[in-house]
């Protein structure tokens, strides 16, 4: 079974934008374009129930639309109250045309930050 999940076309998201990718197996995924670099995290806020894709993306931080907790989308780190539990990240695989997530792996930044 492949753990590779198609997130979007490479030119689909402009820098600074984000989108929710429904996924029944691992839960919905949120994909972000940070100045040309793609990142992916779980879409569900770890605080209560909210889709992060409806939040504001600024300076690499996603602000939850419900209680305005914040995560660093590169590492998944919960940086602003009331979010205390870190966010699950996914490793990105970029091909010629498409952006995938490997849902079996954390993002490298998350591993480096030792949050995973």
């Amino acid at each position: 079974m492949t753990t590779r999940v198609l997130l979007c076309q490479r030119d689909e998201l402009t820098p600074g934008s984000l989108k929710k990718v429904p996924n029944a197996e691992v839960g919905d995924i949120c994909v972000y374009n940070l100045e040309g670099q793609y990142y992916a995290t779980a879409d569900l806020c770890t605080h209560a129930t909210a889709s992060l894709a409806e939040g504001d993306l600024e300076d690499g931080l996603i602000t939850c639309p419900v209680h305005w907790g914040q995560f660093d989308v590169r590492t998944g780190e919960a940086v602003t109250f009331p979010c205390e539990k870190h966010l699950r990240t996914y490793q990105i695989i970029v091909t010629d045309k498409e952006v995938f997530a490997d849902v079996a792996k954390e993002a490298e930044e998350a591993l480096a930050a030792d949050l995973a």
Partner: peptide, 12 residues
């Protein structure tokens, strides 16, 4: 939200 839309609830 600042637009007044209901975005979430405790125990949603």
């Amino acid at each position: 939200g600042t637009d007044g839309a209901l975005r979430g609830m405790h125990e949603s």
